[in-house]
Amino acid sequence: MSTRAISGLVVPPKGHSVWLVTLSAAAMAFLAVFALALSVTSARLAASWAEALSQTATVRLASPPEEMELQTALVLDVLRTTPGIAEARVMELDEQAALLEAWLGPDLPLDALPLPRLIELTETREGPDRQGLRLRLAAEAPGAVYDDHTRWRRPLVQAATRLQAVALVALGLIGGVTAAIIALAASAALSSNGQVIRVLRLVGARDRFIALAFMRRITRRALLGATGGTALGMAALLALPEMDAAVPVLAGIGFQGWSWALPLAIPPLAALLAWMASMATAFRVLRGVT
């Protein structure tokens, strides 16, 4: 029998610590899948919100009703002659009604309200000189206000970025807790196998051989547990109910496309963590055995 083969056999196959490693790795991998999903989703949200609003803007025109058409024409003329504006379109009344419906209800008498006129802009990638545009609008149509959505977009992007940071911190914490649990389990495994260690030292086995025997066992169990936990986590994500547009923030929590490959990195990472944690513990415990 080879050294490697006997190394796989010297640690007794049964023991509570072995189950502790498997179960804790499974539980932590399950949680890690969700933390990762949250991180990926928040990154995607931040990108999509930034992207969705980044090349649009609105000009809000408040004017006495009798001057509204003239002012609108002036504003459109300014916009069409401004470099960086790809398109300018006056929003229809029913479009404005749809926007206000969420706050004021469907039976809104728009014609009775002094609503400003909204002009939707699509900007080129370079965008206009915003300060210059504001000055020109103020000169040509004093009631026109250029809004590039920055004040709406920035807090949304910030919120999504912070959510992503929280998810990454959660991932780090899960990794730390996993390492701590595995280190404890390794310590318990080594303590409960004092006889094995004494016999191996007695026959001349090096610490490296003994530590490797325990590290292999613990790493294999962690890999097994993490694989199961990851599979369960991915299945649970797939089983989440579809969020419709009524809850836009929750829509799409989980992985999309290639990002489904990301959780597949969890089991090998858990195994690596288990390998390092059990190695540190094994050599520390072995130093106390003659």
Binding site: I6, P13, Q195, L200, V203, G204, A205
Partner: peptide, 21 residues
């Protein structure tokens, strides 16, 4: 005596060799 109780007698007897390569 002190053995690895989950290994056979034959494996225990060979342990000083196999565990040291």
């Amino acid at each position: 005596c002190q053995f690895l109780d989950h290994l056979s007698v034959e494996q225990n007897v060979g342990l000083p060799m196999t565990a040291t390569g």
